[in-house]
Design a protein around this nucleic acid. Structure first.
Length: 1023
RNA sequence: GCUGAAGUGGUGGAAUUGGUAGACACGCUGGACUUAAAAUCCAGUGAGCAGUAAUGUUCGUGCGGGUUCAAGUCCCGCCUUCAGUACCA
């Protein structure tokens, strides 16, 4: 047996952390109660997806910050809700299932176990009793339930909120739809009350679907025929699928959508009521994209020969003041009127163009801004005021999905219209006073005066805008309108691993399954791929039909479309489950409601939400939308779910590099052999410089000859090393050839590098067998086998497996402990900032913990004294209390770690071992380093967890100073300091300073022009 | 292009209202302990110049201006990096 020489009372993080983690679990220390006389505080982390790769040190950053805050709030007397769970539906598990056949539920379960193990090691104060998983039927039952509520709701613009669909039906019954102010589909045909009564059931359903907050619609999607699925924009690269490189086309498909556009204005307005980061608010504002302008109708001029129905083109414009500058119109190629108005002569050209654009993905179309393309339809529209004919073009710079998919082109005022007009030789009338438009369009609004515009001439932008809308409305040519960029959100996915819809189809119309039969549980399938005829994976399920008699899921063979109907084959998208989970945590196990009224009214909303900024326009917008909907319908008490939000920054990896040159060696027997030489970063940079300079032309003769001599020197050094190396193999080197331009940098695993940036060459060669015969040269070009060390190069990059820079928190916890990890993650820098990880820095916080530990010991003996503290000890304690409290309130966790270090350094210097100092110090530190503080707390004789202790109270009296060390500046430059009493008046200070001999020396006999004195701060003598 | 954030020693960063720039760490250098290494402890550490030294002095917070007794901090104009977004009519 190995003799144990570990002293009993050394800081043993492994033992301590295990002990307290078990203690917290057994005693349910962090269980939150739904009824308490204490004020509530709800701290939440953004929902993690349990990926197979597990956590790296970047992931827990936000969790540590929120945990510190949660623990702090407990010390401050709050009843804290700090839950955690998993957004466990998702693509990776499904992809894995497709590859291996393993059920996604199984991989998800395994991944969650790994995640939980990793999280537990870091000592978080989560209330695990409230854990939720989106893929758990007990949970998604309520996701389905919310979907049904959305289906059964419409948006009443008069009351400005969502209402039950029954209120809409009763309006239809009384008055038809003519005067209903609702958010609904476009192109709804008007009907009267009598007509409504005469509609068939399915006709009524079809009409209602146009008003429901979740509805079926034909939406353009990116369809990949080879993969049999719809792809998201980010899964397509250069028009082909990211996976496999298959072509992607745009195709109309019937999909569930969410009428989020109904909430556009309220989502915008709500931003001013919540404390979220400005950049995040800005990107939501941007995404919602409110613009104010007018709708204008243009009549299509019909060829006289054919008796067509009159057609109009509706356009949205933010510049109705420029209406007299319109010289053409452009429709999106997908615009429904295109086929109806195109003349026979232009038909072929138009069809070709449409086909060509359909092949391009939307993303590609948007990325390619430079190419101007379009085709004339042959048709003309009539200008509402001048009655002049305006040519109608189609062009792919007009997007079908925004506004009406058509624009009135004003080339003098819009650069895209200008470019289009130039390209196709369309006239560019100038409607601005004294503005030159021969080179570019004039888009400025301020200070512009309209000209050549009939009743608008001579008006400023603002006045013209108002007047234009007025006249449009008077004549019935248009009306003022607010438009939003925000589009309704597609809610269907052709995937297996997601929430099934509680929907079956009767006569092609969707029917909701009654709430009492939820959840509709995901069926088993043989294969997780789409079916051969292109149906989503659920099309493979054999038992996936709804029996309206038994109200249960039955075998597909029983489908008769009389009592047994097919169920929906799509599943819900990833954001469904995460749009309301924060409410479920309030009452996570409730089987009869998504959360009880009592729980919802007690916890109300999240007080602090921490997560990444990548969710700015996805999750965080959808969740706000659902919350507002649930609020409208009276299911939740507040309409914003998170009061305060903080985006934590990303932690980047510090990659390590080795630099390889391949040298051709010619031996004395004329055979050649290639040797791999690894040179240091310094040499690599030099060679890079050679390479860059040699590309440059007109290079200075001197520099060139310098480079050449440097190259020769390097070559000689390498050659002499190679002679030695080859001699060991009994070979004689005659000559070497080096191609400097073929130098390569290669990632080395960061775990093979020590804190002095030296590579463990031996282990590196074991790790990369292909470099086994590589020769490593040090900075001085010496050979590493001769006791030289090899220094790696460093670069900051995203953490990723392929860059070998991933650091696993488990390894850090094993070596330094969770407390050190927590402190170090906070110590790295401001929470919101992106910052690089470098493991070597952790030794600083680790030795801090050891120093802290030592304060409580005399040798091996735990020993604190009950003596009264000195004023200096009290000063250290109280300035620490003040700073740490301020820092936590400001989420400035990095600076409080420094504060702790300063406190421990000072107390060590004072040899302080007073209980009255050391006990409160532990409470201050416990949110950051909960394990070591629990251990010392219990050694101090406490039997309760430190997490319940009251936060120490700051007493300003201990910080009162009687003197100040004044910095004395001359012309703003600090020269020396003088210690003076703080009681002195300005005059007394001036007297003391001016009579000081150092001042006299500085002044060299001159009389100062001015002496600035700020008592308690500074003295500045101006000469 | 637009929007946002940020540029401070060799490195991460600190300086909360304009008032001693570089706290606290990492790294590095030197020393103590050790057979040795690790660990630990002590001292030094922005750059330049002068001096054996104590010390003195100049420069210094991306660049150029400005306001002020005093600017990392405020104002004007640029540059660079990162992130998000992208023909939005």
């Amino acid at each position: 047996m190995r003799p144990l020489k570990v002293k009993m009372m050394q800081y043993n993080h492994q033992e301590i952390e295990k002990k307290w983690q078990e203690f917290w679990a057994e005693n349910q220390t962090f269980k939150a109660s739904n009824s308490s006389h204490l004020p509530k505080y709800y701290v939440l982390d953004m929902f993690p997806y349990p990926s197979g790769a597990g956590l790296h040190v970047g992931h827990p950053l936000g969790y540590i910050a929120s945990d510190i805050y949660a623990r702090y709030k407990r010390h401050k007397g709050f009843n804290v809700l700090h839950p955690q769970g998993y957004d466990s539906f998702g693509l990776p598990a499904e992809q894995y299932a497709i590859q291996t056949g393993q059920h996604p539920a199984q991989t998800t379960e395994e991944n969650i176990k790994t995640y939980r193990k990793q999280l537990d090691k870091i000592g978080f104060s989560f209330d695990w009793d409230r854990e939720v998983r989106t893929s758990n039927p007990e949970y998604y039952k309520w996701t389905q339930w919310i979907f049904i509520q959305l289906f059964n709701s419409w948006y009443n613009k008069d009351s400005n909120k969502a209402e039950d669909i029954s209120t809409l039906i009763s309006l239809f019954e009384k008055q038809g739809n003519a005067n209903i102010n609702a958010v609904c589909d476009e192109n709804i045909l008007p009907f009267s009350a009598e007509e409504w009564h005469q509609f068939s059931d399915s006709k009524k359903q079809a009409v209602l679907l146009q008003y429901r907050l979740t509805f079926l619609s034909d939406t353009e999607v990116n369809w990949c025929p080879a993969l049999g699925t719809v792809l998201a924009n980010d899964e397509i690269i250069n028009g082909v699928s990211e996976r496999g490189g298959h072509p992607v086309i745009r195709k109309k498909m019937t999909q569930w959508s969410m009428r989020i556009s109904a909430y556009a204005q309220r989502l915008l307005d709500g931003l001013s009521t919540i404390d979220w980061p400005q950049p995040l608010k800005d990107s939501q504002t941007n995404w919602i994209g409110r613009s104010q302008g007018a709708m204008v109708s243009f009549k299509v001029i019909e060829p006289t020969t054919i008796n067509h129905q009159p057609k109009t083109i509706e356009v949205f414009t933010t510049r109705p003041d420029t209406i007299f500058g319109v010289s053409f119109m452009t429709l999106a190629p997908e615009h429904e009127l295109v086929s109806k108005i195109t003349t026979d002569e232009q038909k072929a050209a138009v069809e070709n163009y449409i086909e060509a654009t359909a092949k391009r993905s939307e993303r590609e179309r948007m990325a390619d801004v430079k190419t101007i393309s379009g085709v004339f339809t042959g048709a003309y529209a009539e200008h509402p005021f001048t009655k002049k004919p305006i040519p109608i073009w189609i062009g792919d710079y007009v997007l079908a999905g925004y506004g009406t998919g058509a624009v009135m082109a004003v080339p003098c005022g819009d650069q895209r219209d200008y470019d289009f007009a130039k390209q196709f030789g369309i006239e560019i009338p100038n409607i601005f006073e004294n503005v030159d438009i021969s080179e570019a369009a004039h888009a400025d609004k301020e200070g512009t005066v309209i000209a050549n515009s009939d009743f608008l001439s001579g008006l400023s932008y603002k006045k013209a805008l108002q007047k234009a809308i007025e006249v449009l409305e008077e004549n019935g040519f248009g009306y003022g309108k607010v438009n939003y960029r925000l589009r309704d959100a597609v809610f269907s996915r052709q995937r297996y691993w997601g929430e099934p819809f509680p929907v079956y189809y009767k006569d092609g119309m969707p029917q909701m399954i009654d709430e009492k039969y939820l959840p509709i549980v995901l069926p088993e399938v043989e294969k997780y791929l789409p079916t051969e005829d292109g149906k989503p994976p659920l099309g493979n399920a054999e038992v996936w039909a709804w029996c309206t008699k038994t109200n249960s899921i039955v075998d597909n063979s029983k489908i008769d479309n009389a009592t047994v109907f097919p169920l929906e084959l799509n599943t819900m998208p990833g954001w469904a489950g995460s749009s309301w989970y924060f409410n479920r945590y309030m009452d996570a196990k409730n089987p009869t409601e998504f959360a009880s009224k009592e729980a919802l009214n007690y916890w109300k909303e999240v007080d602090l939400y921490i997560g990444g900024s990548e969710h700015a326009t996805g999750h965080l917008l959808y969740a706000r939308f659902w919350q507002k909907f649930l609020f409208d319908r009276g299911f939740v008490p507040v309409d914003e779910f998170a009061k305060k939000l903080i985006n934590q920054g990303m932690i980047l990896g510090t990659s390590a590099f080795v630099y390889r040159l391949i040298i051709e060696c010619i031996l004395d027997d004329k055979t050649t052999e290639n040797k791999e030489i690894f040179i240091s970063e310094a040499t690599y940079k030099e060679i890079k410089k050679f390479n860059e300079l040699s590309i440059e032309k007109n290079i200075d003769e001197d520099i060139l000859s310098n480079i050449n001599s440097d190259k020769e020197y390097l070559k000689d050094e390498i050659e002499s090393t190679l002679i030695e190396v080859l001699a060991l193999e009994n070979k004689i080197l005659e000559k070497i050839n080096i191609n400097f331009s073929e130098i390569q940098n290669i990632h080395a695993d960061v775990s093979l590098v020590n804190s002095s940036e030296e590579l463990d060459v031996h282990r590196f060669k074991e790790w990369r067998k292909d470099f086994e015969n590589g020769i490593f040269l040090s900075n001085q070009l010496g050979w590493t086998e001769n006791n030289h060390s090899y220094t790696v190069g460093r670069e900051v990059e995203k953490m990723s497996k392929s860059k070998y820079n991933v650091v696993n928190p488990d390894d850090i916890v094993a070596e330094y402990g969770a407390d050190a990890l927590r402190l170090f993650e906070m110590f790295l820098g401001p929470l919101e900032q992106t910052k690089p990880w470098k493991t070597s820095g952790i030794s600083g916080v680790y030795s801090f913990l050891k120093k802290l530990w030592k304060l409580y010991f005399n040798g091996d003996q735990f020993e604190v004294s009950d003596e009264n503290p000195t004023s200096e000890e009290l000063k250290t304690l109280h300035k620490t209390i003040k700073k740490v409290e301020e820092d936590i309130e400001n989420f400035s966790f990095n600076t409080s770690v420094s504060t702790f270090m300063i406190a421990v350094n000072e107390l060590t210097a004072l040899q302080c071992n007073k209980r009255s100092i050391l006990e409160p110090l532990l409470i201050l530190l416990s949110p950051y380093a909960p394990h070591i503080t629990e251990e010392l707390w219990s050694k101090l004789g406490h039997t309760n967890s430190i997490s319940t202790a009251e936060f120490p109270k700051f007493e300003p009296k201990y910080l009162v100073e009687s003197t100040k060390i004044y910095p004395i500046s001359f012309n703003g430059k600090m020269r020396f300091t003088i210690e003076l009493s703080l009681d002195l008046s300005k005059e007394e200070i001036e007297k003391a300073v001016m009579s000081n001999e150092k001042t006299i020396v500085q002044l060299e006999g001159k009389t100062p022009k001015n002496v600035i004195i700020v008592p308690g701060k500074i003295v500045n003598i101006v000469g």
